[in-house]
Simulated assay, not measured.
Amino acid sequence: MTGRSAALVARQAAALDDACGCRFVREATEGELSDGDFARYLVIEEAFVLTAARVLGRVVWESPSWGTLLPHARSLTNLVTDQRDYFAALRDRWPVDAVDAAATQVRARSLSDVVLTQVAADGRPAAVTGMLAAETMYARWCTAAAGAAADAVTRRHPDLQAWIDLHTGPDFLAQVNALSDDVDALDPDEVTDEDLDRWFRSVLRAEIEFHDAVHG
């Protein structure tokens, strides 16, 4: 990560630390996440993957060239294949009753609301910046979780480990790089650092509320 994206991440280091330090991430990393919390997480994360797919669809729509379009088309393909398949395979194994699922989704909805509102108001620049916030958070905490102590990894459920693995592999990291490249290319005369900070920080704050929702 270089240029404007690297400077953005550096300016928002405290917000990123806060998001990566939320209870869900701590417990997932240490292998201490309860079954009920993981089941509720699957409900809301699958819903957010739909939001992310919609956002990347907007990015693809507003991409002016093959060079700017193709990386996000690949990311969108990953969301609607590998990630969607992950959730589909786990629904029967991790059931959540309808009332609990609905209540959890209400508590978690601020993340989708923030992302979609920013994109509706400010288009492609807000889309790539907001998604960079979300994906940078996941790249960071999942990489840390992958390198956690052996006893923590042993305690972690294999289904959670599979989700972590999806976010440390080359396909996902390519998504992060594509978003970073797009932020680097934004014209500072049209999109200020203040704009980038606002979009990035708002998503990270919403990420904390989103992940806290799984704890009931």
Rank of each mutant, 00 (worst) to 15 (best):
D97K: 10
V9D: 01
T192A: 12
L8E: 03
A13H: 11
L76V: 03
D82F: 08
C20K: 04
R58V: 15
H72N: 08
L79I: 03
E209N: 05
G147N: 12
Q118F: 04
R156M: 09
F87Q: 05
L70I: 08
A121C: 05
L50M: 09
V49F: 12
V191T: 15
A10D: 13
D92R: 14
Q12D: 05
V203G: 01
L56D: 01
F24V: 05
D122S: 14
A10L: 06
T129C: 14
A152H: 15
C22M: 07
F48W: 11
E27H: 11
A52Q: 14
H167L: 05
W141E: 00
E32Y: 05
A52M: 14
L173D: 09
V49Y: 09
V128D: 04
A185W: 04
A120T: 12
R74G: 00
L173V: 08
D197I: 05
G123R: 04
D85H: 09
P170E: 14
W66D: 09
E32L: 14
F200Y: 15
F48S: 05
D113V: 09
T104G: 10
A139C: 02
D92F: 11
L50S: 09
V59F: 01
Y86I: 07
T168V: 15
T2A: 12
G216Q: 11
S75R: 07
R40V: 08
L33V: 06
L56S: 01
S180I: 03
A73N: 02
L69P: 00
S5D: 12
V115W: 00
S75G: 14
S112I: 03
L173E: 06
L173Y: 06
A133L: 06
H157N: 04
A126H: 02
V214G: 07
V43P: 00
D85K: 05
D100C: 06
L69W: 07
L42V: 07
T168R: 14
P64C: 00
W199H: 06
A126P: 03
S75V: 00
G216N: 10
T117V: 01
R201Q: 13
V49E: 10
E207K: 12
E45T: 05
V114C: 09
A145M: 13
V80Q: 11
L69D: 01
T77Y: 11
D195S: 07
A15S: 11
H72T: 11
R107D: 07
R4H: 12
H72C: 05
I44H: 08
A13V: 09
L111F: 04
F200M: 04
P158G: 08
A7E: 15
D212Y: 01
L42D: 04
A139E: 14
H157P: 07
R23T: 15
R205L: 09
P170L: 05
N177G: 10
G130W: 02
A174M: 02
G36D: 15
Y41L: 13
E194L: 03
V119W: 00
S34N: 04
N78L: 10
E135C: 10
G147Q: 08
D181P: 01
L204M: 10
R4V: 09
T81L: 06
D82K: 12
T77V: 02
A146G: 14
D17S: 10
S110H: 03
A98S: 13
F200H: 15
E194T: 08
L50N: 04
R140C: 08
T129H: 00
L42M: 11
Q118R: 07
V9A: 02
A148C: 03
V153N: 04
L16P: 10
